[in-house]
Every structure is written in structure tokens, then in C-alpha cells.
Design a protein around this nucleic acid. Structure first.
Lengths: 327, 327
DNA sequence: TAGCTATGCGCGAACGTTCGCTCACCCGGT
DNA sequence: ACCGGGTGAGCGAACGTTCGCGCATAGCTA
């Protein structure tokens, strides 16, 4: 493992017998006033020495790192991962690299992560962690130091959002169940303090009312985005409202737990209880009773966030809350 | 969104009325020969101006970026994600940031990703993508430019591996089934060309032989790590060997598809067919027939990889193939 | 042949740090 | 009163680039 020493542009220039600034002109790609022969000589020298440009030095002088930061929650929820992967690939397509930070359980290290990104002079930051909804410290950093785009609301605003229309999602899922003739429709939600949850809940109520049904507190149970929480919420729901015949679940991940709990309770799906969820995570259709799910454009959300961020970095002003359409 | 201009250490120094080098000594933390009062003055000035150190400049002079690269496959397989998240958190615990790159579908952009990491002068690289098993170009880069640790074998060697004992995993899962009295035990594998698959297959055969059973080609079906592939392989298996009463699946993700396919085929789990899988992904226990799964220490793998990498960066020589124990 | 323009290349400066050396000063011991 | 050691702070250099300007040389027009 004899490690290769990095060669600098000066060594390349020396080999090609030009000044290192000239070598720089050629190697940094732009079309510049250099004769074809010298250019060739320089490229040959670079290849021979295995020259790898030093982005750090370049960033320093250019005052731009072509790097963006991504702060994600560590929930092993596929939904967030999906958006993150898409975001990274989109960023790379535009020549940017991505520095990630995954929040620890409580999300208390969010300010540290963001600060570390800022110290590394990322050109922009994408926040994909529900925890930031409550973090004013992070919000302040995001607002004042660096362009940012968030997938969640940020306290105090000032950061553009990208997301999907959660209310519509809730409405769509619930009205689907209502259209099937169900009259006792429960819901297993995400954490109440998240906006997503409240929006979807509104959509859920909208749909109930539109179907002439009255929302009831007994039909709503709070989950925590995990299969475990989904299962617990379901048990609670069955206890409080044994007559229920349909459930709208706020995420596919929780739906796994919901299906499990229903099975344990001896309810058949979809014969006894119909389940509709949302996210459209890859495995949804392969679950044991195949899951009906509202497709949320997660990857598109990630892609769009990057687009917006890069535009913002480029200096274009960007507005707020863009909504995408679920199917 | 009036963006704050970054203030340099010189401005801080000017405000504190010291030379910027002295300010540097104080702000970069080490205990140095500076009087308590001046130190205080400098810190106050830094706070007042909202000074954020510039890691880029620091990296340039220190010839170390305190950043590591992580190249992951984009498979939305939770297993890999789990390891990646753990790796990032461990790296951060040691003051390092993580630059990620997710391979595109075919994995053909792996060399580009690695090159970009090298140009950004990462101190080391962790490869968590099965695709690299076949990529000699990547292997060459990893060997010659930068310390690396891989979770998969690398063509030509020279890169330390971290992983779990896959053969043992296969043996464990299969012998569990054999101990339950099953005599016709099938297996839904990962892609044949991956080492993991072959190792687990060996373990599977080991266990069969130990139980006095003869391995048969008809009992082995290749999957592709997706629920979809798992389902297809299962159908194939049922067709070729209808008498089978147990299946060892090479990943929890595929197991979802396997369970689905069995259900569609009218086989009850575990009454008609027993299923054992491996990974111990969070939702395994909540699947409809709860999944029996061999726990693979994914997070620990990520953590260990970072440990090893940092040791390697620090100059300690490291060996090869470390195995961890599944339960 | 003198003057002008275009072409090819070099040079100095700057980006924001860290590091090691030097220097001035104060204090205590002889 | 003199010397030595320790302490606090400054200074120059370096890290590997990019950028804009300036200076030759060559070719073209008048």
C-alpha cells in the first residue's frame, strides 16, 4: 500500500516546461489562449504524473466549494432516504458534492451538524429532517449564513420549502376509503407536533366531511413513524373503536406495523379492515395483503430541492412552499 | 435573506488588536502561550463578529481535510443505509465529515464518484457498494491514492475489508431450519456473482450436509436483493420443488417478496413453509407472519469500518477481512 | 519600414489558514 | 548591576489554486 503522493500543478508545469499558471489554464478546462501544442504537452504531463486537481485549493480562491450539505434525520425511514439519494445524484449531475449529516436520536446535534457544514463552507444546505421544525438555533443558522432549502417547515420562516401537498394526500387516501363505502374510518398518524401530520389530518377530515361523516377523536391514534408505533396505535384504535373497517396510515413504514397488529387481532385485510397508506415505498406492493398506497413523489422532492437550492446559490430569488402532486 | 458575509480571522484579530496569527492560536483551540486576557479579547471579538472558521483554508495548509468519502450503492436497501448512517455518525464523533456518493443503477459511475472524492482530498474512503467487486478501475484508485476500507471484496485486493461472517450466517439460518425437522429446505439467494451470496450459499450447504441432507440445484433460486426478485425466485422454487417446507432468504428485503409470493401461492407461513432470513432490519418483527431473522450487525459494520479507516489514516497498518458475529 | 492588433505565455497577488521561528520584555537569582 | 530563562506576541512562509494584467513576439496593414 505504498501511497501515491499527490502531484501539484507546478510539477506538471515543470515537466511540460511552462509556468504553472499556464498549466492551470489548460487543466481547469476553459477555452483559453494557449497554443494547441503546449496544451497537449501539459495534458500529457498531467496524465504521466497522475495529476489530480486539488479542489480544496480551488475552493479557497474561488470562494465556492461546489459542495452542498444535507442534514437528514437518522430514522431509518426509507422515505427520507429515497429523497436523499435522489438529491445527491441530482447535485452530482450539476457538479456538486454532498456532505451528509445524520441526526442522532433526539435530533439535538442538529446545530452542530449545521455549524460543521458552514465551517466547511458548503454552498448551500438541504434540510431533510422533521426535527428542524422545532429547532430555532438551526433556523437561525440557515437563515443567516447560507442558502438553504428545507423539506420541512422551519421556525421563523425565511427558508424556502419543498414538499408535497400533504392535505391533498390525506384527502385522497381517505376519500378512496369513503368511496368504497366505509363509514368508520380510522387513522394512524405521524407525530402530532409535525406539520405533515396535521396537514394530512386536515385532509382526512376534509374527506370525511365531504362524505357526510363526522370526524371523531376516537378514530385518530398517534404513531411515531415506526412499525412499532403503528402497531401500538392500531391496538389503541381497535380498542376504542372496534367497529372500524378502514384505516388511513400516514406512512408505509408504519403500515407494516398496522398490518401486523390487525393480523394479531384476528382482523383480515382487506376483508375486515381496509388499509390505505402513503409513500409508495418500493416494497409496498409486495406486503402480504398488498398495500394500497398514495404515491408521494419522494425522489422528485429531493431532485427539486437541489434544483431550487442551486438556483438560490446562483443568486436567483426563490419563493416559498412548492407543492407537488400525489397520485 | 440578506446573507451574512463570512468574517475572516484577520478581522477578528483587528477587532481584538492582535496579529491574526495570534488569533489563530487561540481560536484553533490548542493550549498555547497566550495570556488569558488577550485570549478572552479574541474570543469576544470572534463571538461579536460571528466568526466561523474556514475549514477549507485549514485543510489546505494542514494537508488533511478531516473528511472521508463514502460510496454507496443506490439500492434502497435498508441494510446498506443502516451501515452508512452508523458510519457517518461514527466519523462525526471523531471530528470527520462525510462526503457521499450514491451509485447510479448500473454502478458505472463509480470511478467518477471516487475520482471526485479524491479531488476533494478526502482523507479516506469507505466503499459500501457491492458493485465495486467488479470494478477494477475503482480498485486501482482506491489502492493507489487514498486509504480505503471496503465492505465488499475488491478486485486485486489491497483494500482491507470489514464485514460479517456470511458463511456462518448461512449455516446458522439453515441449521435452524434443519433443527426444526425440515428436510426440503430451499434458498432464495442474492446475485450469484456477489461474494456474499456465494459465502452464504456455502454456509447453507454446510448446514445441509451436517444435517445429513444433500444440497440440490433445484432448491436454489437467484434473487436480486429486491422484494420483486424475491417473489420471482420463490415462484420458481415452488414450481421446481413443490415439496419444499422451508426457505432461507438472503435478505429481509427479499423476504418481503418471498412472503408475498408464498401467500399468493396459498402456502401458509409458518404452517406450510417456514422462512428464515437475515439482516434484522427494523421492521422484520412486524411483518405479517413475523420473520425469523439472523441478526447481522450492520450498524456495527459501519462503525467498525470508520474505526479501521481512521486508524489507517493515522498511519497504522491494517490487515484484511475482519469478521463479526451474527446471532 | 513603422505602427497596430492578435496571440501565447508569464508574473504577481490573493484566498484564509497554521506552523515554527524570532524578538522584546519582565522577573528573579547571583 | 548583570545575566539567564521564561513568557507573550509578532512575523514570514507555505499550502495549491485561479484570475487579471502585462509583456513579448509574430503577422498584417498602411
Amino acid at each position: 500500500m505504498a501511497r501515491r503522493r499527490y502531484v501539484s500543478i507546478k510539477e506538471v508545469a515543470a515537466l511540460a516546461e511552462v509556468s504553472f499558471q499556464t498549466a492551470s489554464k489548460v487543466l481547469s478546462g476553459g477555452q483559453v489562449r494557449v497554443s494547441a501544442q503546449t496544451a497537449e504537452r501539459i495534458l500529457a504531463a498531467a496524465a504521466e504524473l497522475g495529476y489530480q486537481p486539488n479542489t480544496i485549493a480551488r475552493s479557497l480562491v474561488q470562494q465556492a466549494s461546489t459542495t452542498i450539505g444535507l442534514v437528514a434525520s437518522d430514522t431509518t425511514d426509507l422515505a427520507i432516504t429515497l429523497a436523499c439519494v435522489a438529491a445527491e445524484q441530482e447535485a452530482r449531475r450539476h457538479g456538486h458534492s454532498v456532505l451528509v449529516g445524520h441526526l442522532a436520536a433526539g435530533g439535538s446535534d442538529a446545530p452542530d451538524i449545521v455549524r460543521s457544514l458552514i465551517e466547511r463552507r458548503v454552498d448551500g444546505i438541504i434540510a431533510a429532517a422533521p426535527e428542524v421544525e422545532e429547532d430555532t438555533k438551526v433556523a437561525e443558522l440557515l437563515r443567516s449564513y447560507v442558502p438553504a432549502v428545507s423539506l420541512q417547515a422551519v421556525p421563523g420562516g425565511g427558508v424556502p420549502l419543498v414538499g408535497s401537498n400533504h392535505r391533498e394526500t390525506g384527502r385522497l387516501a381517505t376519500s378512496h376509503l369513503a368511496a368504497l363505502g366505509h363509514v368508520s374510518i380510522g387513522t394512524v398518524t405521524g407525530l402530532f407536533r409535525r406539520r405533515v401530520t396535521r396537514s394530512r389530518l386536515h385532509g382526512y377530515e376534509d374527506a370525511l366531511r365531504a362524505a357526510g361523516l363526522e370526524p371523531s377523536e376516537d378514530l385518530v391514534a398517534e404513531g411515531d413513524w415506526t412499525p412499532r408505533g403503528g402497531a401500538m396505535a392500531t391496538r389503541l384504535l381497535l380498542e376504542r373503536s372496534p367497529e372500524l373497517t378502514a384505516i388511513f396510515v400516514h406512512s408505509d413504514t408504519m403500515a407494516i406495523g398496522v398490518l401486523g397488529a390487525l393480523w394479531h387481532a384476528g382482523r383480515r385485510v382487506p376483508a375486515d379492515v381496509a388499509v390505505v397508506s402513503c409513500d409508495d415505498i418500493p416494497f409496498a406492493e409486495y406486503l402480504v395483503p398488498p398495500l394500497t398506497t398514495v404515491r408521494i413523489p419522494l425522489a422528485e422532492t429531493g431532485t427539486r430541492a437541489v434544483e431550487l437550492l442551486l438556483r438560490s446559490i446562483a443568486g436567483e430569488p426563490v419563493g416559498e412552499g412548492v407543492d407537488l402532486l400525489p397520485v
